[in-house]
Design a protein around this nucleic acid. Sequence first.
DNA 1: TGTAAAACAGGACGATCATCCTGTTTTGGA
DNA 2: TCCAAAACAGGATGATCGTCCTGTTTTACA
Lengths: 209, 209
Amino acid sequence: MRNRVLDVAEASFQERGYHASSIGDLMAAAGVTGGALHHHFPTKKALALAVIEERVAAAVEETWIAPVQAAGSAREGIRAVFEAVAAELEQQGFVRGCQLNNLAHELSLADPDFRFALASIFAAWREAIAGKVRTDQQTGEEQGTDPDRFAALAVAAYSGAMSMAKTAQDAGPLRDCLAELERRTDSAASLGRAGAKRRRRVLLRPGKP
Amino acid sequence: MRNRVLDVAEASFQERGYHASSIGDLMAAAGVTGGALHHHFPTKKALALAVIEERVAAAVEETWIAPVQAAGSAREGIRAVFEAVAAELEQQGFVRGCQLNNLAHELSLADPDFRFALASIFAAWREAIAGKVRTDQQTGEEQGTDPDRFAALAVAAYSGAMSMAKTAQDAGPLRDCLAELERRTDSAASLGRAGAKRRRRVLLRPGKP
DNA sequence: TGTAAAACAGGACGATCATCCTGTTTTGGA
DNA sequence: TCCAAAACAGGATGATCGTCCTGTTTTACA
């Protein structure tokens, strides 16, 4: 029951945002009475904090941290995630945006507790990438790379690309940013590999809302 | 009077967001009665649309488009904007975030009218940078650069860095991303210029909220 | 099996929200 | 000067919000 509430809250917060998600809507969607919800989550803030700490953090872990750590290198991991997310968005035909960024924009200034919880997820995300770069460096790669700065750009590029993709309802910005990151990587590594063909721009069909 | 309403709405939307800004609060802050506000803006949506089209678009024009077009090159313009914004944030000691991104996250999925208005601002922003790159290319520079992809990455990196800066209340991500973008630029251009010294991390004092 | 705590039901509560209404004042052109 | 339109005043209204309250049921353990 508690998990059913978290399920619908997670989905509603991502699609409608925190303030636009009313407790009544969540109760109806989860099939839960007021008393039950109030028992597990005394306030709406408590519910949102649980969503952030239990669901958003897990989503970042699943879609970013684990794949990057499992990849052959930080750069390969980043490319894999960008491509996987872009492909998923194009397949489902709708861009809901990044859960972490959506809530970060709406709640960071609303309450310090929200901000701290969200900031720690950002920090873990960045640190996972930076740590992977440091691992790569032990094999002689990425010698000229500052791990923290590299991680900051990777996270920022993804977050910003998702923001554009959500607004345009088009996964194009993700593919553009990945291509530009890789082109620069190629040049920096002096590989001189020919740039990829110009991708076709996929216009997504509008989704549910 | 109409402008006074737009002033407080613009500020409140950026600091608290759309849904958390009540008409009553805006009326009190602007010193405007309900009748006056309803005369100029029949609905809250109409008010937000006016803020987006008249104020947010102007803010992007002022802080990004004009400086980039006035700069010696696209890369110089981008660096100037990143540094100017980072310096401003550190000086005022508080990160309110990017107006466009804040509203884009909260409103893109809420209403198609909002989404279209926000998407056109993103498009103008990207096109201004891409256009500057094309101008640079006429002088022989940036031959290997795809203007649209380059612009996408610049906008995404800024948007994402601002998102992190807002959540961390620290301008560091902006400086990190700029440094990483420039390092890659240096390598790509084979200039071999020594990387900038590691910047000091400025922890901003908490602001008003 | 007995029992205390946890989990859940379902409605009540005051506050706040966005909108709309009927008037009054101000403005600008004839 | 006249007058119609725009600008503004200020309260009314119904809906919806988040929270809380009093009971009932289920669970876990001794």
